[in-house]
Nucleic acid binder design. Structure first.
Length: 257
DNA sequence: ATGGTCGGCAACCGA
């Protein structure tokens, strides 16, 4: 039985409602994870999702961050935030859905390599590693998806030489991410699509989408038992992006359960 | 060449 999962950095869920609802209607995923919802829980726009058959789990704050899981199936064991302090609850949420554990993260961007925010980003990777170790085993059925704010390889950015040293494309961050991946994650998009130049993010500021100056910052990872059951993974450029701009695309995977 | 544009939300910050 097909089980479709997807992820999307919305950069404000309220300003992307039309795009998200149209996309849900077109692809009918079982699960859609959303990052950068930028909305407090009391203001989360759950009614349109419920009306379209999607139950929601979300954890947000005013102005910044915020994550959500939309699902056509009941959600159980919903937990937000890392376990240790500072909890930073609005960057991680997880839930169990039909025997699958779904985790979504919005990893800190890091701003500048010399900033405190960059230190915080590196610490966040370590804390996330401890989170995985304490809650899951690589033999469990788990998926981890979201905006990781890392491009892992040269082929994941439009200009590797020019971008080297950027907070999303530097050795410290790539090594931190590699350590997490080594725990037992399979990058589903790379498993199915090895070609270079396939991106999920384009900077607003450079007409980057039109010029395809992109980055692959969004990922769907799965533990091996799930990855073995992944039939396809693809980036989906919602056509409405071109009329109502957004800077990330949807990324989706089809599992066979 | 050394910029630019979004979103939140009311002056800038974050990306």
């Amino acid at each position: 039985m097909e089980f479709r999962i997807a992820t999307f950095n919305a950069n404000s869920i309220r300003s992307r409602m039309e795009i998200i609802l149209a996309w849900l209607d077109r692809h009918r995923p079982d699960v859609l994870c959303v990052q950068e919802t930028k909305v407090q829980d009391v203001e989360f726009p759950k009614t349109p999702f419920l009306d379209n058959g999607y139950t929601c789990a979300f954890k947000g704050e005013k102005k910044y961050n915020g994550v959500a899981i939309l699902s056509r199936h009941p959600l159980t064991k919903v937990f937000a935030g890392l376990d240790d302090e500072p909890k930073d609850p609005a960057r991680l949420i997880r839930a169990d859905i039909r025997g699958l554990t779904v985790v979504t993260t919005y990893i800190p961007q890091g701003q500048d390599p010399l900033s405190d925010k960059f230190t915080y980003k590196l610490q966040w990777f370590q804390r996330l590693g401890r989170y995985f170790e304490s809650h899951f085993a690589p033999t469990d059925r788990v998926v981890w998806m979201g905006d990781m704010n890392v491009a892992m390889e040269d082929k994941d950015v439009y200009d590797p030489a020019g971008l080297r040293g950027h907070v999303c494309f530097c050795p410290e961050v790539q090594q931190s991410m590699s350590k997490l991946v080594e725990w037992g994650w399979v990058d589903l998009f790379r498993k199915h699509c090895p070609d270079p130049g396939q991106y999920t993010f384009w900077d607003y500021r450079m007409n980057a989408l039109r010029r395809n100056l992109g980055w692959r910052l969004d990922y769907i990872f799965a533990t091996r038992p799930v990855a073995e059951r992944c039939m396809a993974c693809r980036i989906d450029k919602e056509p409405r992006m071109l009329e109502s701009p957004s800077d990330h695309t949807f990324l989706m995977a089809d599992l066979d359960f």
